[in-house]
């Protein structure tokens, strides 16, 4: 399985991250108005109305352990399929690129599958499933 796959490459704070293109349905520019969610975990920016669907927006900064989300993120990655009502807030979407699967599996959180190279920069490949599970876990037991 050395095939490269198309990924969405984006920035959160100063770090580069990527999700498989198949896991992302669309990229949305963050709207001005959010409806705040009662009793939601801090990582939840709010919900938005996206063509009649109520989509929950979760900021990736706190999820990735990169600190609090002071301002809403600039771009939203709407996740695909079962996670269609969930969007992740990121600073900027930079590229759609073919990325080699990581040669070195990542250690630690389980959110990062490994590191790939895109030109000069190191890109952390995120696991969409693990990310989804992590977000759901934020809500559980509240």
């Amino acid at each position: 399985m050395a095939d490269s796959t198309r990924h969405v490459v984006f920035r959160v704070e100063t770090g580069r991250y990527a999700l498989p293109l198949a896991a992302v349905r669309e990229v949305v520019v963050t709207p001005e108005h959010f409806t705040r969610v009662p009793r939601a975990p801090a990582a939840v920016t709010g919900v938005i109305n996206l063509r009649g669907r109520v989509v929950t927006v979760v900021d990736l900064r706190p999820v990735l352990g990169l600190g609090e989300a002071a301002r809403p993120a600039a771009k939203l990655l709407l996740l695909d399929r079962g996670r269609r009502d969930l969007a992740l807030g990121v600073a900027e979407v930079e590229a759609i690129a073919e990325l080699e699967p990581p040669s070195v599996p990542a250690e630690g959180t389980g959110l990062v599958r490994g590191v790939a190279r895109l030109g000069e920069v190191a890109v952390q490949l995120l696991d969409a499933e693990a990310l989804d599970a992590r977000v759901t876990a934020l809500f559980r037991g509240r």
Binding site: V37, R39, V54
Partner: peptide, 21 residues
């Protein structure tokens, strides 16, 4: 929808005529 259904105290959500959830 998931994960909002995990939160206590919410009966549901709706979109008003103005488009606001």
């Amino acid at each position: 929808s998931r994960p909002l259904d995990q939160l206590p105290g919410l009966a549901g959500v709706t979109i008003l005529g103005s488009g606001r959830p």
